[in-house]
Computed example of a mutant assay.
Amino acid sequence: MSTPSATPATPATPAARQSLIMVCASMAGVIPVMTLALWFVLATDGIGEFPTDWPPLVVLAAAVGAYSICELVGFRTPPLEYSNRPAAEIQADSWRRFTTSTFTRFAICEAVFLISVALSFVAESFWVVLIGAVIALPLFFWEAWPGERNQRRFAAALESGGIPSYLTGRLQD
């Protein structure tokens, strides 16, 4: 009889991370759905002419501002303080703080899209919504998606006091 080959164990993804990924995917999915819905409202005569006025520049400026805020303050958090708490409790606290930060960064990134929606009605152009969606989605995936990059950055801030956060499963440099 042959025995099944042993496969190396892969580290399990914490339930908190899986839940956060599902919520973020749902939130990100709203942007294309709203863009499609607004196409029926704003693009009555096709996609129309590209606006030569200020609305696209305002959307671009909002995106630069959102990126700057997320990069400069989006990953800041007070470091963990020493306590006699068990590692599981520290990890749960780290995930709560990371989730809060993720939602805040998402709101900042989504504001770019919401500004473009408002400006599209002022400019009466679907192009403004399209520009907002094309800029806001990659900005969200870069700044707010709970991927390895963002987890490491936040874990480094949590662990800056020397206390392990267990957010990524290991201590950060």
Score class of each variant (00 low, 15 high):
86 P>H: 07
86 P>F: 04
86 P>L: 06
86 P>V: 10
88 A>M: 06
88 A>C: 01
88 A>N: 08
88 A>L: 04
88 A>T: 09
89 E>C: 04
89 E>G: 06
89 E>Y: 05
89 E>D: 14
91 Q>G: 08
91 Q>W: 07
92 A>N: 07
92 A>L: 01
92 A>T: 06
93 D>P: 00
93 D>Q: 05
93 D>G: 01
94 S>M: 05
94 S>D: 05
95 W>V: 03
95 W>Y: 14
95 W>F: 12
95 W>N: 06
95 W>R: 02
96 R>H: 02
97 R>D: 06
97 R>K: 14
98 F>P: 00
98 F>T: 04
98 F>C: 08
99 T>Q: 03
99 T>W: 00
100 T>N: 06
101 S>I: 00
101 S>M: 07
101 S>H: 00
101 S>A: 15
102 T>S: 05
102 T>V: 13
102 T>I: 03
102 T>Q: 03
103 F>G: 09
104 T>F: 06
104 T>N: 04
104 T>I: 12
105 R>Q: 04
105 R>D: 00
105 R>M: 01
105 R>H: 01
106 F>W: 13
106 F>K: 01
106 F>P: 03
107 A>R: 08
107 A>Y: 04
107 A>T: 14
107 A>I: 02
108 I>Y: 00
108 I>E: 00
108 I>K: 00
109 C>H: 01
109 C>L: 05
110 E>A: 14
110 E>M: 13
110 E>V: 12
111 A>Y: 04
111 A>Q: 06
111 A>I: 01
112 V>N: 05
113 F>I: 10
113 F>Q: 12
113 F>L: 09
114 L>M: 11
114 L>T: 03
114 L>A: 10
115 I>Y: 08
115 I>D: 11
115 I>T: 15
115 I>L: 14
115 I>A: 12
116 S>L: 09
116 S>Y: 06
117 V>N: 11
117 V>G: 10
118 A>H: 09
118 A>K: 08
119 L>N: 06
119 L>W: 09
119 L>E: 03
120 S>H: 02
120 S>T: 02
120 S>V: 07
120 S>N: 03
120 S>K: 06
120 S>C: 08
121 F>M: 09
121 F>P: 05
122 V>R: 10
122 V>G: 03
122 V>H: 05
122 V>M: 12
124 E>C: 10
124 E>P: 06
124 E>W: 14
125 S>N: 07
125 S>R: 05
125 S>C: 07
125 S>F: 02
126 F>C: 11
126 F>T: 04
127 W>T: 08
127 W>R: 09
127 W>L: 08
127 W>D: 13
127 W>Q: 10
128 V>D: 08
128 V>F: 06
128 V>K: 01
128 V>M: 09
130 L>M: 13
130 L>Y: 06
130 L>E: 08
131 I>V: 15
132 G>C: 03
132 G>R: 02
133 A>E: 14
133 A>Q: 15
134 V>G: 14
134 V>P: 10
134 V>W: 11
134 V>E: 11
135 I>T: 15
135 I>L: 15
135 I>G: 15
135 I>W: 12
135 I>R: 13
135 I>A: 15
136 A>T: 07
136 A>F: 11
137 L>P: 13
137 L>E: 12
138 P>K: 08
138 P>M: 12
139 L>P: 10
139 L>F: 14
139 L>T: 14
140 F>E: 10
140 F>R: 12
140 F>M: 15
140 F>L: 15
141 F>Q: 09
141 F>L: 14
141 F>A: 13
